[in-house]
């Protein structure tokens, strides 16, 4: 459904992404991982038209995304970013903004359907109790949940998330990723998710793209990507890969300096 062909882009003469090619299949949960500065956020921006590619193209359902109008594109692709600006609106108004792509010309007021969709999205994300709170009164985890609710209000086919679990406690990390997986499996929503935490990526993604220095290092299933050779090569860190006893997905253990030296001596 989403094809990225030879995508090269960057700011000024700095290339941040070089020759990226991959496909996203329908109803897939695709993870993007990579060290800091490897181009994950730039890739998300290139996929959502925020930066123009220098070379290559991004094709969504057979059309180059630069040939689709802003409005049409935002009915198909919704994005959840990490930068929620401080604002003085309440949660319901915020989620209603997700309906903007569906407004007709010269339509000022929300229709009954808009309110129904927003209510449904709030129920899905368990945020209905926050309805009348203001954005500066809610916690970081709740902000992430309402951002997802707003993206769902766009009724998209593809959802892109840029590190939705950053700076959150494990309760919210799991809550958000469980929600995304549920949306993916039950409603058939295609998801591309940038994750920092390798173990979360391993646990939740069908396929993983590992980026390094603006290049795709490898694409594959969690078992194929999360091996200690690949991780040590890309992240330049000593790790041990085991398995999660419940899901038997790869699990990455970190080794501190002291133990590292000890094991060398032994």
């Amino acid at each position: 459904m989403f094809e990225i062909k030879n995508l090269t882009c960057g700011y000024n003469s700095d290339f941040l992404l070089k020759d990226i090619t991959f496909n996203v299949n329908k109803k897939e949960l695709l993870g993007i991982i990579g060290p800091n500065g490897s181009g994950k956020t730039t890739l998300i921006k290139a996929l959502t038209r925020l930066i123009k590619p220098l070379k290559g193209e991004v094709i969504f359902e057979g059309k180059n995304i630069w040939q689709i109008t802003h409005k049409e594109l935002s009915k198909k692709i919704a994005v959840v970013t990490q930068n929620l600006q401080p604002n003085f609106m309440n949660v319901e108004e915020f989620i209603l903004l997700g309906r903007s792509p569906h407004y007709k010309k010269f339509q000022f007021l929300e229709t009954k359907k808009d309110y129904e969709v927003v209510r449904k999205c709030m129920l899905q994300t368990d945020t209905i109790r926050l309805k009348d709170k203001f954005l500066n009164q809610i916690s970081g985890g709740e902000k992430q949940l309402i951002s997802i609710a707003r993206a769902l209000a766009q009724e998209p086919e593809l959802l892109l998330l840029d590190e939705p679990t950053a700076h959150l406690d494990i309760t919210h990390q799991i809550k958000i990723l469980d929600l995304i997986r549920k949306l993916n499996k039950e409603s058939g929503l295609t998801v591309i998710i940038v994750l920092h935490d390798l173990n979360l990526a391993s646990e939740y993604c069908d396929r993983i793209i590992l980026l390094n220095n603006g290049l795709i290092h490898k694409i594959g299933s969690p078992q194929e990507i999360l091996t200690y050779q690949i991780i040590e090569e890309v992240y330049k860190t000593v790790v041990i890969v085991g398995n999660n006893p419940v899901s038997s997905k790869p699990y990455i253990f970190l080794v501190n300096e002291e133990d590292r030296k000890k094991s060398i001596r032994v």
Partner: peptide, 24 residues
């Protein structure tokens, strides 16, 4: 200006967010 009141509401979230909401 009223033709742009929704766009202004969306821009109050930031320009990138507004672009994600389908605003040129």
């Amino acid at each position: 200006s009223y033709l742009f009141c929704l766009d202004l509401n969306a821009i109050s979230l930031g320009e990138e967010e507004a672009a994600h909401l389908g605003i040129d």
